[in-house]
Computed example of a mutant assay.
Amino acid sequence: MQQPIAILDSGVGGLTVAKEVMRQLPREKIVYFGDTARTPYGPRSSEEIIRFTREIVDYLIQFNPKMIVIACNTATAAGLEDIRSRVEIPVIGVINPGARAAIRLTVTGCVGVIGTEGTIKSKAYDQALKALSPEITVISEACPRFVPLVEKGNFRSRETYETVQSSLGHLQGYPMDTLILGCTHYPFLTETISEVMGQGVTLISSADETAREISAILDKKGSLSQGDSIPVHQFFCSGDTRIFQLITHQWLGKQIQLSPVVWQIPTIV
Rank of each mutant, 00 (worst) to 15 (best):
P4F: 00
P4R: 01
L8A: 05
G11T: 00
L15T: 07
V17D: 00
M22P: 01
T36G: 07
P40L: 03
P40M: 04
P40K: 00
E48D: 08
E48R: 01
I49A: 02
E55K: 10
I56V: 13
I56F: 09
D58Y: 02
K66C: 03
I68D: 01
I68T: 02
E81M: 11
S85M: 08
S85F: 15
I89D: 04
P97G: 06
T108E: 11
T108L: 09
I114N: 09
T119V: 09
I120V: 06
A131V: 07
V138M: 07
E141A: 14
R145S: 15
L149R: 04
N154E: 15
T163D: 11
V164R: 03
Q165A: 13
Q172T: 10
P175N: 14
I180V: 09
G182Q: 02
Y186I: 00
L189V: 11
S194G: 13
E195Y: 15
V201L: 03
V201T: 11
T210E: 00
A211K: 01
I217Q: 13
D219H: 10
Q226F: 12
P231Y: 03
F236Q: 13
C237H: 01
C237S: 05
D240N: 13
T248Q: 15
W251V: 10
I256Q: 11
L258R: 05
P260K: 03
V261E: 12
I265P: 04
I268A: 11
